[in-house]
Design a protein around this nucleic acid. Structure first.
Length: 496
DNA sequence: ATCTGCGGGCGGT
DNA sequence: ACCGCCCGCAGAT
């Protein structure tokens, strides 16, 4: 743990402000005296909680790097969104650089269906949507609630799939593409390069690559990345300070902080090929909280080629992924359920609860990371009980009322007692539970701690920034990028 | 054309 | 009672 803290030095704390306090999105009363807010986290993962300033544009938009769609929870007080997963090549082909195609699923159902009909820009095979099953077999859910001067965010579940491109990346790509397309220049190239024009224009990658470079290189850009980028992670989340970023739609632009920036890197991980599901995780990487548990990312496993990966996968033919083999459509992993069950058993019944809301991620975490999504299940599940043990809790007890109520909700006063969990705070040294102590303590406490420890090592924030344009147009060719870490952009641009 | 949020409704647990 | 999810509507981009 300590180390994590070190890393965050800049931020004041090891864990996010939100995590220090004990609260649950469903609590009737949320901490009101928030004096400090968390820096916006674009790529949250795990059972985490953040408290953002109501002024934070990203928070106001309920933004996430993950493709989250609105989910009707029949509670107007709390906005719930569930993860759509990521769109990948059904053959799990590897781009020249060794990275994998990981598109952002369209949020709109109709648009997503269209998207899935497209072909992989790299190998022309079908695309497939890898659904998120990180929360007990269901998609990871994010909850947003505005209360007072703060925007409370709580995430449940650990994404068991690679990161899709972030919204800002997608937008940037699109705009870049448009421009290019409009340019006569590109048009020509495109024809040359693209096998089937028209087919994928939508795709991110193709365009960019096409535009930017010739076919051979196209993908290379990203490639190098294999590293551990994972590291990328997130910014420290904690900047107390508000991010002031303007964040234009592109988001990218300035997000100040870290958050966005860092996050991008996220994709990196995607790239990495790694052995299929191994578990290497001894570590619990996850921890719930951190947005980016470094551990998870650890996968940096050496870059192998996809070939490897594929092999790893059960099926050579198409999808390497274990689960897989699904057609392009959304895959449903049948097994999922089963697995989940197991999880539930393991996790769920924790002290708290029933649902196992806060399962630990550790295990999971890995899964995902290590292997690529495909493996998700393979691994973790059952296999790593250890990790699991940590898991935890439940959540919700919610007392919120159904929508129709007036805005002011006052929920009861009840306090959920947390049954003893309180300790968490103690763990967190810094935690300043003080005021909220009354609130219930979320189950995750345990998790949190852990998480804390892991928080990203990452560092650096990369500054994203500057201009989008720049990066977009900039030559991607740079294969040479040294490390991704430093260049967040590279990806972006590179990626596609 | 999409994104985003809302809310009705259905089915499963 | 909850939850996940589908669907349509509407306003915003």
């Amino acid at each position: 743990m300590s180390k994590s803290s070190d890393q965050f030095d800049n931020s004041d704390c090891v864990c996010s402000f939100g995590m220090k306090l004990t609260w649950d999105i469903n609590d009737p009363k949320l901490p009101q005296d928030t004096k400090q807010y968390d820096a916006f986290q674009e790529w949250t993962d795990g059972y985490v909680r953040y408290i953002y300033s109501a002024e934070d544009k990203n928070a106001q938009r309920h933004l996430s790097g993950w493709a989250m769609r609105n989910t009707n929870n029949h509670n107007c007080q709390i906005l719930k969104k569930s993860c759509l997963g990521v769109v990948v090549c059904s053959r799990n082909c590897t781009l020249a650089d060794g990275s994998k195609l990981q598109l952002r699923p369209a949020i709109c159902d109709k648009a997503r269906q269209k998207q899935q009909k497209k072909l992989c820009p790299n190998c022309n095979s079908a695309l497939e949507l890898v659904p998120c099953r990180g929360h007990s077999g269901y998609p990871v859910t994010n909850f947003w609630r505005v209360d007072g001067k703060a925007i409370f965010f709580q995430a449940k579940g650990v994404h068991d799939h690679p990161r899709p491109e972030s919204k800002s990346e997608t937008e940037a790509r699109r705009s870049a593409v448009k421009r290019r397309m409009s340019s006569p220049h590109f048009a020509q190239k495109r024809r040359l390069i693209e096998p089937e024009p028209g087919r994928y224009h939508d795709m991110p990658f193709p365009n960019i690559h096409q535009l930017t470079m010739e076919a051979p290189d196209r993908f290379s850009i990203i490639a190098e990345s294999n590293f551990p980028i994972q590291t990328q992670h997130y910014p420290a989340f904690q900047n107390p300070e508000p991010y002031k970023f303007p964040y234009d739609t592109h988001g990218a632009t300035t997000m100040a902080d870290t958050s966005s920036t860092l996050q991008k890197p996220a994709n990196h991980r995607l790239y990495m090929p790694r052995p299929p599901c191994g578990y290497d995780f001894a570590v619990p990487g996850y921890l719930g909280s951190g947005p980016y548990p470094p551990a998870l990312y650890k996968d940096p496993v050496s870059p192998q080629n996809e070939a490897e990966l594929n092999k790893g996968g059960p099926s050579l033919s198409g999808t390497p992924h274990s689960a897989s083999v699904l057609p392009n459509h959304e895959r449903t992993y049948p097994d999922t359920t089963a697995k989940h069950h197991s999880w539930k058993q393991i996790l769920g019944k924790g002290p708290y609860g029933d649902r196992g809301e806060y399962p630990q991620l550790p295990a999971n975490a890995n899964h995902y990371y290590n292997s690529e999504y495909p493996c998700r299940y393979t691994g973790p599940g059952p296999a790593t009980p250890t990790a699991l043990q940590t898991i935890i809790t439940t959540t919700t007890k919610v007392s919120y009322q159904p929508c129709p109520k007036p805005s002011v909700v006052k929920y009861g006063e009840n306090v959920y007692d947390v049954k003893g969990l309180t300790n968490c705070n103690s763990l967190l040294e810094e935690s300043s539970p003080t005021s909220y102590s009354e609130l219930k303590i979320p189950e995750d406490s345990g998790v949190i701690k852990t998480a804390v420890s892991y928080q990203d090592p990452l560092p650096t924030k990369i500054e994203r920034v500057e201009n989008f344009e720049g990066y977009r147009y900039s030559s991607y060719s740079s294969n040479s990028y040294p490390e991704r870490v430093t260049h967040p952009y590279r990806y972006e641009g590179g990626e596609y």
